[in-house]
Amino acid sequence: MRLKTALLAIFLLSLADLVLYGCYCDCDFAPTGTFEICSIDLLSIDNAGGSPATASDTVLADAYAIEITLNITQEDICSHSFLMNSAFAASCNCPDAFFENRNPVTEVHIYTVNDFSTTYDAGDEVTSLFYRYLGHEYEPINSFLRPQNAASVTPIKVRALLMEAPAIKGNHSFEVELIMQDSTVVSATTSSIYLK
């Protein structure tokens, strides 16, 4: 009898807890704010070793990569604070706060500045030669340079691995260009690196 009463009490308390949370849970599914890509920074990477390192002036052509940093800025932050958002998220399993790209990237281009091979001359697009490695698979790089949302307004870093070595050895540099929805163009060029 006592056991039954105790179980009933636990059940009712759980139900009340569920109902009360349901009433007071006020998840905000709208983005916390918006962001926009202002500029990009490029860094040549030497990936010849076990871990990537900043390139000096010469890199093995098969182990060249570019670290692309998207510098983003925020604007139009919601009236409620981050603290309130995170508190709600913890108690109600609401989605984490996120920022929405108000000026999405529509096109991504990577151009070779120098003659690359018989197929790619100086000025040609070589975006399809760059990939990102994600644990157990490679993905084309352009999908990672079009962020729709961001968890926070901090620079987004993407490492683009050059998966086809240039047939023409020598100094090489690459220009990364992002075209936004409003036709704004953001671009940068890597320093010249000797790819051997």
């Binding site: 990936n47 010849a48 093995l60 182990a63 050059l162 998966m163």
Partner: peptide, 10 residues
Amino acid sequence: TLKELNTNNY
């Protein structure tokens, strides 16, 4: 999962 030295290959 292995990374091949001197390349970008995994």
